[in-house]
Amino acid sequence: MAEQELNQANSRLVRRLLIATVAMFGFGFALVPLYNLMCDTLGLNGRFLDIEQGKYEVSSGPMAQVDNTRVITVEFLANVGRDTSSEFRPMVHKIQLHPGEIKEVSYFAKNLSTEGMIAQAVPSLAPGKAVKYFTKMECFCFNKQPFDAGEEKVMPLRFFVDPDLPKDVSTISIAYTFFDITKNEQVNTGRSELASAQPVLPRTSVSH
């Protein structure tokens, strides 16, 4: 190849490879929404789903027949997030119920700091395949919870387990992590949030 020709060929190739580099850098970030999409569509990772949007066919509502032939154990767990100065625990650790039966349990939370805080409980459910059959009618995790300094709260969780729950699931564990999001709330005020940084979990709908 003549020198000029070679120079042209090189710059053309370099340009293409640089575009590929930038595209792959973008792909790294695209993995974030892709990951969330995968988890939500496939119901992985114990994330909670938009059942009310009709993505899943859950055959029965709370009025459906209670399946007395099965007993499901539901375990309640609690974790306190880092830098969160609070007490947080379930009032009962374990209950047994029949699919279709509505139950209400409570979590206790207390702000141990001397300042007010806004808290958010983030749920995680295992096994993942039970996620779409665990329907919350009311949950403290639907909303951000404001606390005054030293304030205590007993917070309700009302739910039922859909009778379509796969036969091999007999125990469901639900874990809440209690985060102090006061700082995030301040940071996020007045600027557009990054798509990926948006809190996914505060859901106000009660049809969960």
Binding site: L31, V32, Y35, N36, C39, N45, G81, Q120, V122, T177, F179, I181, N184, V187, N188, L194, S196, A197, Q198, P199, V200, L201
Partner: peptide, 15 residues
């Protein structure tokens, strides 16, 4: 202040 890998802000460390 982003939360790509922080559950408190809607992210996920598994990601």
């Amino acid at each position: 202040g982003t939360s790509f890998f922080d559950a408190a802000g809607g992210g996920d460390p598994v990601l």
